[in-house]
Design a protein around this nucleic acid. Structure first.
Lengths: 198, 198
DNA sequence: GTCTATAAGATGATAGAC
DNA sequence: GTCTATCATCTTATAGAC
């Protein structure tokens, strides 16, 4: 079994020329833009500048590559959340997190939220891949819930769902309407809502 | 060109044994449960009890069948919205529409919102099929916006997006968490929000 | 008018060459 | 250790039988 990205040493990466990482990176982008099912290994290999068919040297199956993309997304989320703990209070942390969506409004209007659309597609798979999506939303729900809890709200769990529902729903509509400003406006309203909470 | 479902007379249906309708109905359910890309014509034909390969007698291409499913969903939406005009005021109409989602909470927790997930997948297609999704959300946004407008709100457009964002986002999270009550709770909060608006 | 057999093409995966 | 050639399978689509 090959080591995961996080387990690889620098020398491993050097020996392979970073091809595994290029594959995961190219796959992440293509799965976001085209969808999981619509993207072929050939397209991923081409985008990563790796010989087609050679993907199987780095990943045992196609599902394994998809799993690696999910792991990478989960890691990105963890990094974003970790960076926010520097902020002084839960209110400003929640608003800063929301702004990571409006900052990406152009991309989201074009291809939807990378997390939300990935989850939705994984949730339709009946294989074990299907339950991998919890890696993405669960940490977010817990983190957001913790912020509301710190604010002294006993209904922190419902508030976390409301928060993420707004963000994901607005991303879906902005994508469907191909209008980044739809997302920007909803995030602004979400910030007001956070400020208005006691 | 074959007549669409709405244009078919009873005798047409009788002669065909309703196979076209069975195909669209089976396709709609499978696209919802498995996704557009993951569903094959064989699966649809089998579910509709129509000989495999015979699908092309009723639909010129696979995309045409998907289009028929989208048309059917759009028609379903129109029917639901039409039925709501009997209600006395915009506030009760908005709450009644929201309840159509919580009424389907078990199905949505299992497979997501039929409209939202269909839109998300269509939005990733670069063919002309991709822009068909506007048939689904546009009428909803306009109708919901009209209700807020009748309530005297000048920001009716933003409110309509907030309303649908909440519903679609909550459906996505309920699906990911496999928890119908998540959706039910968010719809209850949405109803309170509607009541609280001036 | 209805359906079967099959073509044509693409995709995931493997075996083995370099 | 890296990559190429190829297989087996599946899927859309068509031609033509009944």
């Amino acid at each position: 079994m090959l080591p995961s990205v996080s387990e690889m040493t620098d020398s491993d990466v050097g020996e392979r020329g970073g091809k595994r990482e290029r594959l995961v990176s190219a796959a992440a982008e293509l799965l976001h833009r085209q969808g999981v099912q619509a993207t072929t290994l050939q397209q991923i290999a081409e985008a990563a500048r790796v010989p087609p068919g050679n993907v199987y040297y780095y990943f045992k199956t196609r599902d394994d590559l998809v799993r690696a993309v999910v792991d990478t997304r989960a890691q990105e989320i963890a990094e974003v959340l970790d960076a926010l703990v520097r902020r002084p209070n839960p209110r400003s942390r929640l608003k800063a997190l929301a702004r990571t969506w409006s900052d990406q409004r152009d991309l989201i209007a074009e291809s939807g939220c990378a997390i939300g659309s990935l989850c939705m597609e994984l949730n339709k798979q009946d294989r074990d891949l299907g339950r991998q999506s919890t890696q993405l939303f669960n940490p977010l729900i817990e983190w957001v819930g913790n912020q509301f809890h710190e604010m002294g709200r006993s209904d922190y769990s419902d508030l976390a769902v409301t928060y993420l529902s707004t963000v994901e729903g607005a991303s879906l509509l902005a994508n469907d309407l191909r209008d980044p400003e739809v997302l920007a406006r909803q995030i602004r309203l979400l910030e007001k809502w956070i400020d208005a909470l006691e």
